[in-house]
Computed example of a mutant assay.
Amino acid sequence: MSIGNSPEDDRPSTSSEDDRPSIGQTLQQARTAAGLTLEEVSAATRVRIPIVHAIELDDFSRCGGDVYARGHIRTLARAVAVDPAALVEQYDAEHGGRPEPTPVAPLFDAERIKPERRRPNWTAAMVAAIVAVVGFVGFTMFTGGSGDKGSKQVAEGPTTATKPAGTTSSKPADPKPSTPAASDSAIAAVPKDKVTVKLSAVDDKSWISAKAHNGKLLFDGVLAKGASKTFTDPQQVDLILGNAGAIQLFVNGKDVHNDFQTGQVERLSYTKGDPEAG
């Protein structure tokens, strides 16, 4: 017997103030009406068959939490042409609603990875030292060839020596100053007057939510493995990562290294400038 046509008697009873069907009934009826099997829905959404079957039985325990449950409901609803917003609203009403948002700035300050100390630019220092040595050697060879005391006195100190008539003094050219180290090209390439955040799902898919500084929703859904999303805002970008361990994060053109774990939920917030400064 196909598990896609389970009898409604096996479905757990749900109590609501109206007569609307449950979330699982709505998804199952829409799938059946569209002529799709569980296997076809699973292949289209990349949600495993046991989870699709459990959701159609109104069993959300396999989803791994409310965040993933909402993400699965949205994905399955789009696959069977059902309004995902209405089903998510029904889920929140039946499961106590969404939790109160945590203040982003204090949470981010507590969880942000401390930036590493900037190491000295040894390359620039070595170049400067080599230029100084070459200049000093050239100066010594130039002034030491004459062999007279006047020349030695000029080389050894600032005292002015008496010079024979008709002689002219030559001044060695000053060594060229070392070239300062180039700035980070990745940071220089992004707009200075905006926040730019790029997310790449490297190891696995992840549900993400991104909002602008005024609360406008920029994206809310599943980022497939290998896919990337870029968000910009004049002031601030707020993020929620459902599977933070799978995400590689670039903020204002800079790779933000993290030690997030697979399945870990993270709330982050970024503004203009160096993401690791301060």
Rank of each mutant, 00 (worst) to 15 (best):
D59C: 02
L57R: 15
A93R: 15
T160A: 12
R119Y: 01
V82G: 00
I55S: 02
R98G: 01
P164E: 11
P103D: 11
P84W: 03
T162M: 13
A165W: 03
T102Q: 09
P101C: 07
C63A: 15
H95P: 06
S151F: 00
K114P: 06
T160R: 11
A165C: 00
F142E: 03
G147Q: 12
A93Y: 05
R70W: 02
D58G: 03
G147L: 14
T140N: 09
P106T: 06
D83H: 02
L76Q: 01
D92P: 04
W122R: 15
P120M: 10
E156G: 06
I73N: 06
G97W: 06
E156Y: 08
A161H: 04
W122Q: 13
A77E: 00
R74W: 03
P164W: 05
I113K: 13
A79T: 02
T159F: 09
A155K: 02
T159Q: 12
L57D: 09
E89H: 08
G157K: 05
V131H: 02
A81M: 04
A105Y: 00
T75I: 04
K152A: 13
D148L: 13
Q153R: 13
I113P: 02
V131G: 10
V137L: 15
A81H: 10
A125N: 09
Q90C: 04
G135N: 02
F108Y: 14
T123I: 14
E111T: 15
S151Q: 10
R74C: 06
Q90S: 14
E89W: 03
V67A: 10
T162Y: 08
G144R: 14
G147P: 00
I130Q: 10
E116F: 03
E116P: 01
F108L: 01
F60Y: 14
F108W: 15
G96T: 08
K152P: 00
Y91T: 09
T143G: 08
Q90E: 11
H95W: 11
V88Q: 12
V137M: 10
